[in-house]
């Protein structure tokens, strides 16, 4: 019960916010629920296959491969691969988080994940077409070049900071889970 409450704490808070909003500004509450409903429909369609793809990646691609392609020693090649992965026309940013999470657990570097997520959100090819149409080619090109440069710098910075001050809490959680799943498979094998 306590665990359930903890897990859904955010959801409960949001429900409360919606309720208050419904009393104070009914029109805002209606609009907001409408948007939430629209996005929910989209996510229900997109997220299950995304998680399955992630499962396939985790089950099939060995850790040392990911480390070699996207790890901290991968250098420019790693950045290029992350950039290319990010620009593929594969949907909204919330799709990318589970993927980035899976890649990090397999040994991808933080630099590459910043570039991956940034390219995914900011430098998608179909999105650039829309941008050119409405904001012009000069605007789009300049933003593209500056954003790419900024992403690489940001990636290096994030990596540097996390290297010096690691996110201990998060790392421990990851190890715990890895151990648990290892124990489970061991039990099954026995």
């Amino acid at each position: 019960m306590k665990a359930f409450f903890k897990q859904f704490f955010g959801v409960l808070v949001l429900l409360a916010v919606y309720l208050v909003l419904a009393i104070v500004r009914m029109d805002w509450a209606v609009q907001s629920s409408q948007v939430t409903w629209d996005y929910l429909k989209e996510m229900v369609l997109i997220l299950p296959p995304v998680f399955l793809l992630m499962g396939l990646i985790e089950a099939w691609i060995p850790k040392n491969k990911i480390q070699k392609w996207l790890g901290s020693g991968s250098g420019l090649k790693g950045i290029a691969i992350s950039f290319a992965l990010g620009t593929l026309p594969t949907g909204p940013l919330y799709v990318a988080f589970p993927m980035a999470g899976a890649l990090v657990r397999k040994g991808a570097s933080h630099t590459n994940m910043v570039v991956f997520l940034g390219a995914w959100a900011a430098l998608k090819i179909p999105q650039l077409m829309v941008e050119i149409k409405f904001l012009g080619i000069a605007f789009t090109l300049l933003r593209f070049v500056l954003t790419l440069a900024a992403l690489i710098l940001m990636g290096l910075l994030v990596e540097g900071v996390l290297h010096r001050f690691p996110d201990k809490q998060w790392l421990e959680k990851g190890e715990e889970q890895a151990e648990q799943s290892m124990m489970k498979t061991r039990k099954r094998e026995v």
Binding site: Q7, F8, G10, V11, L14, L15, V17, Y18, L21, W28, A29, V30, Q31, S32, S33, Q34, V35, T36, W37, Y39, L40, M43, L47, Y94
Partner: peptide
Amino acid sequence: PSILVVLGIVGLTLG
């Protein structure tokens, strides 16, 4: 749960 939270916030900001 965090997906639901994201959905709720998206709705609020866009609404």
